[in-house]
């Protein structure tokens, strides 16, 4: 049993994405294999140096950086979305792999769920 959670919504816009993250952490807590795929505007979750004091929300970047510690298997970012938003390995969170063909990924998990 392996799960892929797909985040295609931008950060901070709605609570749906944070709920997806909670779900990923909960699966990891019970040692279920879970990975995250960021596509579309969702890749912006991964950008470094988010400074959230002005919007009174917790930093998604910092929350997300706990994923490997909690046992989330992998984090993927769709290559074309990264290119569109000027994201590279250098300005993204550590530990993210760029997925050239994300639609292939969707078929490799026993359960794939889109957030939001």
């Amino acid at each position: 049993m392996s799960t892929l959670i797909v985040i295609d919504q931008p950060p901070y816009g709605t609570w749906a994405g944070r709920e997806a993250l909670d779900m990923a952490f909960s699966l990891a807590a019970f040692d279920q294999s879970v990975s995250l795929l960021f596509t579309g505007a969702g890749v912006n979750w991964l950008r470094k140096s988010q400074k959230t004091d002005g919007i009174e929300q917790k930093s998604i970047e910092k929350n997300l950086s706990a994923a490997p510690i909690f046992g989330v298997k992998a984090m993927f970012a769709e290559a074309s979305a990264c290119a569109r938003y000027g994201l590279t390995i250098e300005n993204m969170l550590a530990g993210v792999a760029i997925a050239e063909n994300s639609s292939n990924l969707l078929h490799q998990y026993s359960h794939t769920a889109f957030s939001g």
Binding site: K51, T52, Q57, E61, Y85, L87
Partner: peptide, 26 residues
């Protein structure tokens, strides 16, 4: 997020963005 893309570079339009939202997204 549009400012990270090439979507908003029309020279005829002045683009403003709310600073707190720009900083939050790095």
């Amino acid at each position: 997020l549009a400012i990270a893309t090439t979507d908003v570079h029309d020279p005829n339009t002045t683009v403003y963005a709310l600073k707190a939202d720009v900083l939050a997204r790095g």
